[in-house]
């Protein structure tokens, strides 16, 4: 495959998001302008101008009319996707790290970083249908986890909130009361900062990537650990294929070490794993720096990666990607097939 290189950002990429139909790709970077691209040919459609700091995360509404972005300039902004006009700006006292629309787009989940003595928070805000009636009041504020909360997302039916961050613990909270319901086990869970969290297409399970050089697959309801994918690089980004039983994991050595080592030593490929067999099935090279963001097109036929090098690389899979059979390699490595692995 010949990836499409998109060089719209001047600073490292931080996040990538497709809209529901998979025709638009939103990219966030440490420069201040989130950008939207056509996801098939990589043409730039527009930029959202107004932030005054690194943009860490974004989410797009189901009908692709509203974009929400969280930035280090201590604001979360709501945008009109089509015109790039800013509709509303939520102001915080600390940088916003992650944003996520609920199912139905009526609520938004925002996490803020610990800053100037303030603890990190998870906040829920209502999104008004008419932006003129938008209020900045939080419906729910959760405090407690130590350190940055890198990702927070809605659990099944918006009933729970799943969060993960610097303290390496994955937590499930009750949306109504804000109470802690479940916590991942310290023994089997991640050992270092969780950097990314990505839900499956149906929301039944999710994948977390961590600097402990592994990614883990969890059940969204019970928070049981299902699978672990071990790699040899810190994981910055991960995504679950909506089409095949694949997960993709990206990362690489920290940016500060890049200049002192060989390019190959950086391990900047995006690694594909078989979701069930936990077997590596392939790697896609290309970035000159660690991968900070990964996203699968909702049709599962293309994926994009964003790197510390400022490039977004959009890959449309070759036909042979869809015929990869991981079982021979798996068996050659001494793996055994278990029946229950294939019964969902």
């Amino acid at each position: 495959m010949r990836p499409i290189l998109m060089k719209g950002h001047e600073r490292p990429l931080t996040f990538l998001k497709y809209n529901r139909e998979g025709d638009l790709l939103f990219s966030c970077a440490k420069d201040h302008n989130p950008t939207v691209w056509f996801a098939d040919n990589g043409e730039r459609l527009g930029t959202y101008r107004g932030h005054n700091g690194a943009v860490w995360c974004c989410d797009v509404s189901r009908d692709s009319t509203r974009l929400i972005t969280g930035s280090a300039d201590q604001t979360v902004k709501l945008w009109n996707v089509q015109t790039g006009a800013q509709l509303y700006s939520f102001n915080f006292d600390s940088p916003a790290r992650s944003v996520d629309f609920s199912v139905g787009d009526k609520l938004v989940l925002i996490t803020t970083d610990p800053f100037m003595g303030l603890p990190s928070t998870i906040q829920v805000k209502q999104i008004a249908r008419d932006p003129n009636e938008q209020s900045s009041e939080s419906v729910l504020t959760i405090k407690g986890p130590q350190g940055r909360i890198n990702r927070a997302t809605w659990g099944p039916l918006n009933k729970t909130i799943i969060s993960a961050g610097e303290d390496a613990v994955v937590r499930v909270w009750d949306t109504e009361t804000g109470q802690l319901l479940k916590e991942s086990d310290k023994e089997t869970g991640h050992q270092k900062t969780v950097t990314s969290l990505s839900k499956s297409a149906d929301g039944s399970h999710f994948l977390t990537g961590s600097l402990d050089k592994s990614a883990k697959l969890w059940d969204a309801r019970t928070l049981t650990l299902i699978k672990t994918y071990v790699t040899e690089r810190p994981v910055n980004a991960c995504a679950i294929s909506p089409l095949l039983d694949h997960v993709v994991i990206g990362g690489g050595q920290e940016a500060v070490h890049v200049t002192t080592t060989d390019r190959r030593a950086g391990k900047f490929e995006a690694k594909f794993f078989h979701k069930i067999l936990q077997e590596e099935i392939g790697g896609v090279k290309g970035h000159f720096g660690p991968i900070n963001a990964l996203a699968f097109n909702p049709d599962g036929r293309s994926f994009s990666s964003g790197g510390e090098d400022g490039y977004v690389r959009l890959h449309h899979f070759d036909p042979d990607y869809f015929n990869i059979d991981p079982i021979p390699v798996f068996l050659a490595r001494g793996g055994t097939l278990k029946n229950e692995d294939f019964v969902a």
Partner: peptide, 17 residues
């Protein structure tokens, strides 16, 4: 801003030991 890579990138399959 948007370019098609001149380099052909393959999904590199790991080989069985």
């Amino acid at each position: 801003l948007t370019m098609v890579s001149t380099e052909e990138i393959l999904l590199e399959r790991p080989r069985a030991p």
